[in-house]
Computed example of a mutant assay.
Amino acid sequence: MKSTNRGTLAAVVTGVAAAVGAAAPAVAVGTVPVPVPLKGAEKALNMELPSVGGEIPLPKPGKPDGPQFVEGRLLPARTLPQLPVTGGLPGAGLRAPVPHVLGDTFDHVGVEAPASDLRTMAPGLTVDAPLTRPNPDNFGLPDTKLPQAGVLDPVLQTVPGADLGLGPGL
């Protein structure tokens, strides 16, 4: 292998390792922080601006429950199973200066809405054929019946929260 090929291969392997190493902490945390840089605007305007930041959750798909076979039916009970997805609602944080409106000890107002867990399940489908199991009284032929179809309702569970506060300093 030529030295140029080895150098190119080493650069590619190093880049992939750096990308995987950078992505691993974000996946372990579950949220990605999103700061909003306003320091340059503060210096340009020569005034104190609010500090703003947020968090974006990373959704993680789960393992769906497989079809459930039920006695007396030709098709399984959950033909299209529900897919669970866990993640979270985005979080936000805001601290804004207040020029002593409420007294000398109140210099800022802040709102903190941390990212909260979210559990969802996609809608599913269950159907049954318009035929029964083979009937020995009918020479092994199935009987007819009305077809059945149903939709498994989606699920959404979360408990969001937020804090509003006033205090000294920014």
Results as ranks from 00 to 15, higher is better:
36 V>W: 04
37 P>F: 12
38 L>Q: 11
39 K>R: 00
39 K>G: 06
40 G>R: 05
44 A>P: 03
45 L>N: 11
47 M>G: 15
47 M>A: 15
48 E>C: 02
49 L>H: 01
49 L>G: 01
50 P>N: 09
51 S>G: 09
51 S>Y: 07
51 S>F: 09
52 V>K: 02
55 E>L: 09
56 I>A: 13
56 I>F: 13
57 P>S: 07
58 L>K: 00
58 L>C: 02
59 P>M: 03
60 K>E: 13
61 P>I: 10
61 P>F: 09
63 K>F: 13
66 G>R: 10
67 P>F: 07
68 Q>A: 11
69 F>S: 15
69 F>D: 14
69 F>M: 14
69 F>Q: 14
69 F>V: 10
70 V>I: 14
71 E>H: 10
71 E>L: 08
71 E>V: 07
73 R>T: 09
73 R>F: 01
73 R>Y: 06
75 L>T: 00
75 L>Q: 06
78 R>K: 08
78 R>A: 09
79 T>F: 02
81 P>W: 00
81 P>L: 03
81 P>D: 08
82 Q>Y: 07
83 L>D: 01
83 L>S: 04
84 P>Y: 00
84 P>F: 04
84 P>V: 03
86 T>K: 11
88 G>E: 05
88 G>D: 07
88 G>I: 05
90 P>G: 05
91 G>V: 04
93 G>S: 08
94 L>P: 04
94 L>V: 13
97 P>A: 05
98 V>I: 13
99 P>T: 10
100 H>A: 08
101 V>H: 03
102 L>F: 15
103 G>H: 12
103 G>F: 10
105 T>E: 08
105 T>W: 11
108 H>W: 10
108 H>T: 13
110 G>L: 04
110 G>D: 10
111 V>A: 12
114 P>K: 05
114 P>T: 06
114 P>I: 11
114 P>F: 01
115 A>D: 04
115 A>N: 05
115 A>L: 06
116 S>V: 00
118 L>E: 12
118 L>W: 15
121 M>F: 11
121 M>G: 12
121 M>Y: 08
122 A>D: 04
122 A>H: 01
123 P>D: 09
126 T>G: 15
126 T>R: 08
127 V>G: 03
128 D>T: 12
128 D>L: 08
129 A>T: 11
129 A>L: 15
129 A>W: 13
131 L>W: 04
131 L>S: 00
132 T>E: 07
135 N>V: 03
135 N>A: 06
139 F>D: 05
139 F>C: 02
139 F>Q: 10
141 L>D: 09
142 P>G: 12
142 P>H: 09
143 D>T: 06
143 D>I: 07
144 T>P: 01
145 K>I: 05
147 P>Y: 02
147 P>M: 06
148 Q>A: 05
151 V>P: 01
152 L>W: 02
154 P>F: 15
154 P>G: 08
155 V>Q: 10
157 Q>L: 08
157 Q>K: 14
158 T>A: 15
159 V>C: 12
159 V>Y: 12
160 P>D: 04
161 G>D: 11
162 A>W: 13
